[in-house]
C-alpha cells in the first residue's frame, strides 16, 4: 500500500494497474479452464490422442488440483451411469382412434394447394399491374410536344407501316376532329394500308428533310382518359409553318385527307405500341375525350381473370382435401 506521502493519483494508478493485472489474469484463467475441461472430458472418455494424452498425464502428475478434477469427473460419470431406471408411471400406448400418419398424398395435396396459391397471387399481381399502370404516361410521349424529334425520312415511313399486314388490316378509328368537323380521311375504306399509302403519296412532294415522326400509341386502354384529344389549330402554326420550304406532315396529311384543318388521332388496338409514323414537326394537342372511345374503356383482362379463378378454386379445393386427409 502507499505510504502517507503517496499522492492520491499514484494510488489510483496502482489500483488501476492491479485491477488491469487482475482482469488479465482472470481472463487468462477463464480461457484456460474450458480447455482443461475439454481435456479432462476427453481424457476420461479415452478420446485424447497419444501425444496430447501423454502431455496431459504429465500435467496431472505435476498439478494435484488437476488430478483431483479428473478423479471427480470419473466419479461423476460413474455415478450418473449407475442411476437406476425410474419406473414408468403408466403405459404410453396410443389409443386406436389416433389419426394415421401423414401420407404422401396429403403432402402432395398440400403442395398443390401452395402452388395454386402462388399462381393466384401471381395473377393478382399481374392484373394489379395491368390495371394500375399509368396509361396516360404511355400516351404522353405521343402527345407531348418535345419528344417529336425528327427521326426518319417520311419516305421510309410508309414501308414501315405496311410491313405489318396484320396491323394495317385493322381499321383506323378516327377521333373527333377539331372545329367539330368530321374527319374525312380518304380513302373511304379507312384502312391503315390505305392511309399509309395516302401519306406516302403525299410525302414525296415534300423535301427530304421535312420529316418528323408521330408515334401514335394505339388502343383506348392505353390512352389516359384525362386529356382530351384533338389537334389544335395552334399546333398547325408550329415551327413547321415558319419554315416555308419545308412541308409539314400535318399539311401532307391534310392534303391527303382533303381537309386542310382536320387532323385526326389515329388509333390502333391496344397492346400494339407501334407506330404509325407520319410527318409531323409540330406538337399535337388533343381536345376530344378519348374516354368516349370504346377502346378506351379499361377492361379486366379475361385470361388473367380465368387463371385467377381457376387457381383460386384449385387452392381452396386442394387445401380442404389436404386438411381433411391429414
Amino acid at each position: 500500500m502507499g505510504g502517507p506521502g503517496e499522492s492520491r493519483a499514484a494510488l489510483s494508478c496502482r489500483e488501476l494497474k492491479s485491477g488491469c493485472m487482475f482482469s488479465l489474469k482472470s481472463w487468462l484463467t477463464a480461457r484456460r479452464v474450458p480447455a482443461d475441461d475439454d481435456l479432462i472430458s476427453g481424457y476420461v472418455d479415452g478420446r485424447l490422442s497419444g501425444a496430447v494424452r501423454r502431455a496431459f498425464e504429465e500435467r496431472i502428475s505435476s498439478e494435484p488440483d488437476l488430478g483431483r478434477k479428473v478423479e471427480a469427473t470419473r466419479k461423476l460419470i460413474g455415478a450418473a451411469a449407475s442411476l437406476p431406471l425410474v419406473q414408468i408411471p403408466r403405459n404410453f400406448i396410443l389409443p386406436a382412434s389416433t389419426r394415421k400418419p401423414a401420407t404422401p398424398s396429403v403432402v402432395w395435396w398440400r403442395l398443390g394447394s401452395a402452388a395454386a396459391s402462388v399462381v393466384f397471387v401471381f395473377c393478382m399481381m399481374l392484373s394489379a399491374v395491368d390495371l394500375l399502370a399509368p396509361r396516360g404516361a404511355a400516351l404522353a410521349p405521343a402527345l407531348a410536344p418535345a419528344p417529336y424529334n425528327v427521326a426518319a425520312p417520311a419516305a421510309t415511313v410508309a414501308p414501315a407501316v405496311t410491313a405489318n399486314p396484320a396491323r394495317s388490316a385493322i381499321p383506323l378509328q378516327v377521333a373527333r376532329p377539331i372545329a367539330t368537323q368530321p374527319a374525312k380521311i380518304p380513302p373511304p375504306s379507312g384502312t391503315a394500308a390505305d392511309e399509309t399509302s395516302a401519306v406516302a403519296a403525299a410525302v414525296p412532294s415534300a423535301p427530304p428533310n421535312a420529316t418528323a415522326t408521330v408515334r401514335t400509341l394505339g388502343g383506348g386502354a392505353a390512352i389516359s382518359p384525362a386529356p382530351a384529344t384533338s389537334v389544335s389549330a395552334a399546333s398547325l402554326a408550329s415551327p413547321v409553318s415558319a419554315t416555308p420550304p419545308e412541308v409539314s406532315s400535318h399539311q401532307a396529311l391534310s392534303k391527303t385527307a382533303g381537309n386542310s384543318e382536320a387532323h385526326a388521332l389515329t388509333q390502333v388496338p391496344r397492346a400494339s405500341p407501334a407506330v404509325v409514323q407520319g410527318t409531323v414537326t409540330a406538337p399535337l394537342h388533343t381536345t376530344a375525350s378519348l374516354a368516349e372511345h370504346p377502346m378506351s374503356q379499361q377492361t379486366f383482362p379475361t385470361p388473367l381473370f380465368i387463371a385467377m379463378a381457376i387457381s383460386l378454386v384449385l387452392a381452396i379445393w386442394s387445401g380442404i382435401i389436404g386438411w381433411l386427409r391429414r
Partner: peptide, 8 residues
Amino acid sequence: SRARAKLR
C-alpha cells in the same frame, strides 16, 4: 465437457 465441469 461444460456440463461435466459444471456438475462436478
